[in-house]
Design a protein around this nucleic acid. Sequence first.
RNA 1: GCCCCUGUGGCGGAAUGGUAGACGCGGCAGACUCAAAAUCUGUUGCUCGCAAGGGCGUGGGGGUUCGAGUCCCUCCAGGGGCACCA
Length: 869
Amino acid sequence: MKTDNPISEAKSPSPELYNPRDVEPRWQRYWAENRCFEAKEDPARQKYYVLEMFPYPSGRIHMGHVRNYTMGDVRARFLRARGYNVLHPMGWDAFGMPAENAAIERGVHPKTWTYENIAAMRGQLKSMGLALDWSREIATCDPSYYRHEQEMFIDFMKAGLVERKVSTVNWDPVDNTVLANEQVIDGRGWRSGALVEKRDLAQWFLKITEFSEELLSALDELDQWPEKVLLMQRNWIGRSEGLRFSFALEDAGGPLLDERLTVYTTRQDTIFGATFCAISADHELAKRLAAKDKGLANFRREVAALGTSEESIERAEKKGYPLGLFARHPFRPSVRLPVFAANFVLMGYGEGAIFGCPAHDERDLEFARKYDLPVVPVVAPKSADPNTFKIGSEPFLEKEGDDAVLINSDFLNGMTVSEAKKEAARRFEAIGIGQRTVNYRLRDWGVSRQRYWGCPIPVIHCKACGIVPVPKSELPVILPEDVTFDKPGNPLEHHPAWKHVNCPTCGSAAERETDTFDTFIDSSWYFLRFCSPKADEPVDPKAADYWLPVDQYIGGVEHAILQLLYSRFFCRAMSRTGHLDIVEPFASLFTQGMVIHETFRTAAGEWIFPADAEYKDGRWFHANTGEPLALGGIEKMSKSKRNVIDPEAIIERYGADTARWFMLSDTPPERDIEWTEEGVEGAWRFTQRLWRIVNDAAKIRAGTEAGDGIELRRTVHRALHAVTGDLSNLRFNRSIARVYEVANALSAALQGPQPQAFAIREAAETLVLMFAPMMPHLAEECWQILGHGTPIVDTPWPVPEAALLAEDQITIAVQVNGKRRDEIRVGKDVPASKLESIALQLESVKRALAGKPAKKVIVVPGRIVNIVG
RNA sequence: GCCCCUGUGGCGGAAUGGUAGACGCGGCAGACUCAAAAUCUGUUGCUCGCAAGGGCGUGGGGGUUCGAGUCCCUCCAGGGGCACCA
């Protein structure tokens, strides 16, 4: 039996003050009890899948969540009202290091910590009144979720999409784990901020590079993604077209017949400007020579030590070590190029070896100047004299267009760069030492993490059989709970029993893989799981078929590369293994701005809570100590800067609707929004004002449709038309401006001398329906006040009357020489010639023309008349 | 260094190449009140003018156009992404 009935309770209003503390929980209970937002597949109805990036269960929601989930909720409620079958789920990105840190620091088990946090945050999200389907809730740390991840990993292995290789990895010495390239920011770990070291470790990799070309070219089809994100992904994949070719090598003793040096270049046109070759310190050849060359061994160590550290990038001094080898120029046999090991050549890109053309590359020029190598220009401006053209401190970098031509380049002389690239490539291929290739910056995705709180990688290491995948019948490999955190590193390493198993193939003693997955794997397919959260397979094809792709994905731009690229990869990999039919997960993406807030600091630089800052006589002081304070800038909310506002406190004080309204008002959703006290107060006052207006309107007896009130009706229908469009395009701030307009017009009509009963009634109902997606609780309550027996969640979005959208009298601006001088009110069908003659008669126009005749008159019907004098 | 985005009143921001400043915040004036808060009404880009009515205005400079916040070139400022990718 239901404990209360909001519909009947709502009918005894307290029109003085709207009390969200009473109203909001009541409607939240109603929606939950009636399962309003539980989605069911229904082939007869058009589906719409709205998703916001799921949260990490840190313990409390923050304002960024409030903004994100409010936007998604408005989208979900709006489309639901427009008749779509909406899926709007929520879950938890529940594996990750903070849980483990809590275990180390406070002795709480990561699982306990995580599930307590989930419970707390679920409650907070529910207090926001979100139209979520909680029956589909998932947590990535639940075996019922991650077992599918393990299964898919094994399928990926069979499909050749997994590789285990020893590689130099980014090692975070504080978190004791490997980091993906994407997790290294300015040479530091993305979480710990510690300087990252290089280490050689055997790691599991997912072969995302198999899809480089596809991941890149498919971006062209994503026309509902922000340009910015597409660009970031394009840059990250980093496609380049070039040529791979090899040099014959020789040393002091003559040609080395069984050894060639392969390089990659995009500037084969500059081959005649090559004056040296350079290989990475990690290049196979360098490793081999270092065995016999102490100087080279030292040089290699030096380069490794600098590694990916910030310092090395800042200093970026080019260094090299001559190998005593020479590369023979492919088209000028008499020319021998000295070969160096160099610190600026990356092993991970191309062949890990280059030819240096100092005249046309900054790095090569710096290197050549340092080691006194020749600088031969081979491209010059057309206007320059090829005999005297010289390179100074800057290389000549012209690549496109026909202003520059090749010089000093034998068969390439006189060609443009693009012509020369083609011709050079052809020649290389003709003599059989080179071929055109495409290279990508994108690397394979290292997914091994030496951490406990993650999904176990389902493989077993057997001395006899090697790597053996855990048989699917034995999945999931469950993360053991009886672990200790007293030693540094991965607790799974020290677990007495879990690690030791028998080999599934030969039965002899073997060991489990103790690494766990990068948590980005968890978030690379969660949106798929929401379609069928309880299915036995990762995704139920029927459900996936109906719901996918996600129609609207909303989240922070900080995931523009990582999570989005991995998800796009995952869908492709899953398609290859037959788990899925689509390759692009997110049809439309919206990246919202951050929530920012003023910061304050003392003269000593200490951050002060904004609540402790006091404004007096044009200056800021500490409310308690009286110390003068400086504004620290408007920054992203962060604990360290002490400018965090807790959503729970705000919802407690003002209610969810007011908080939601603030988040949608004024600032466009893609920009950063500044949290201000005045802003929330304004939203709160408007919440109350709406309540008063609707209560006043409800007192007026419904009238019959009459001619009076037509202006109010026009305003309402025009606003409705605009809001419909704005909500369709996520332009929340504009929708809100329109809601204000209707509220103002209705309020004025209520105070007018003759109540226009029909128009007022219509205005009040439309007003409530319009703000319902944004302030759902208030809207439900108002809807009942207006006498409806059904909830607004089940009420369709209204449709404006076309007749009321068109105006019969319009205002036309009149300009003289492009300056506005007057305006005229005319019927909407007045012909251009008539407009012209009316305009020319105007006193203001005559004055502006100062007696001179009009030379020309431009009439834009419905818009403007411009008289040129 | 390369690439991208953004510059509009005191503030957040509106504006299919066609009346710049919608809507909100804040300010000012008034009503209500013993008073304050709340609420309601009016007003609010800058500037000259008693007024009528002018002038100036979308970061700076130039251009295209009958007409530019909007398009093009260039410079400046702020923010973001990548970071030795050959």
